[in-house]
């Protein structure tokens, strides 16, 4: 039925040999819980992704958590204004390690078409962004693709070597 059936015959007692890092990465990427956190137009596509037509749960990514304490992926979906920035940073600070940031859409990545006095020109000035997703707004499939790419990235991380960790990026608060 599951993993045990294919392991049982070959390895007798069901022992698998792998590296600690791979096991940790595998566990982390397989339970990536996004924070319920929408800002502007992109948030609508993020909601769409979770609903029946696109169904994020096919990939096991659908557990949106309203509490940042329980989330480890922050999807910055939309324009970050200077007034909203402190709240965004606080939500990031409240999330527990390890955590990842996905800048969804042109506004979160670079400020987009809103080059004005009120808009932060890219959230990467304040948060360590792991994945940029272009589009204004990006299609739902694009968001799924970005999360899958983030999974691949997490698999390449070196959690046991702190110097190699992506998480060494600091958050300016």
């Amino acid at each position: 039925m599951g993993l045990e059936t294919c392991l049982g015959d070959k390895y007798g007692d069901g022992v698998i040999v792998t590296s600690m890092e791979k096991a940790i990465n595998w566990a982390r990427k397989s339970s990536l819980w996004p924070c319920t956190f929408g800002l502007a137009c992109c948030a609508l596509e993020m909601i769409d992704v979770a609903l029946s037509p696109y169904d994020l749960s096919r990939f096991g990514m659908e557990v949106f958590r309203p509490s940042p304490r329980q989330a480890d992926l922050m999807i910055v979906a939309g324009t970050v204004t200077k007034k909203m920035l402190p709240a965004v940073l606080r939500i990031y600070a409240q999330m527990t390690e390890p955590k990842w940031v996905l800048a969804m859409g042109a506004c979160a990545s670079t400020g987009g078409i809103f080059r004005s006095y009120a808009v932060v020109q890219g959230i990467d000035q304040y948060l360590p962004v792991d994945m940029y997703l272009p589009g204004c707004p990006p299609r739902p499939e694009a968001l799924i693709d970005a999360i899958i790419k983030l999974h691949e990235k997490i698999m390449r991380e070196k959690p046991l070597h702190s110097s190699g960790s992506i998480q060494s990026g600091s958050c300016k608060i």
Partner: peptide, 23 residues
């Protein structure tokens, strides 16, 4: 609309589009 502590009026013509560096 703007943060309460800001000290500017952006729609005035002498205010630059990209602001004066308010945080």
């Amino acid at each position: 609309l703007l943060p309460y502590h800001w000290d500017c009026h952006p729609l005035r013509k002498d205010y630059p589009l990209e602001g004066k560096g308010e945080e």
